[in-house]
């Protein structure tokens, strides 16, 4: 098989697209997964706590 301009174009227009759609789906599932809700809620409020020394 000769890898030329058309091969690269074909790859970009097929697999390149599927990969982005797949990636989009994975990110959405992670973001809205119910058990992640509490983790995200903690994360956004915890940075407002006092932070003058490391936690050990």
């Amino acid at each position: 098989m000769i890898v030329d301009h058309d091969t690269v174009v074909h790859f970009a227009k097929s697999w390149g697209l599927f990969y982005l759609i797949g990636f989009f789906a994975v990110v959405c599932v992670y973001t809205f997964w119910p058990s992640n809700r509490q983790r995200f809620r903690d994360a956004k409020s915890k940075i407002l706590e006092r932070d003058d020394k490391p936690c050990r």
């Binding site: 995200f40 809620r41 409020s45 940075i47």
Partner: peptide
């Protein structure tokens, strides 16, 4: 995402939105 919530003393409006926009911008 760190200094704005710190200064305003309010958590970010939507943490989930920040994740979605992170991956959107990256890709």
């Amino acid at each position: 995402y760190y200094y704005l919530p710190k200064r305003a003393e309010r958590p970010i409006f939507s943490y989930r939105l920040s994740i979605l926009s992170f991956w959107g911008i990256t890709f």
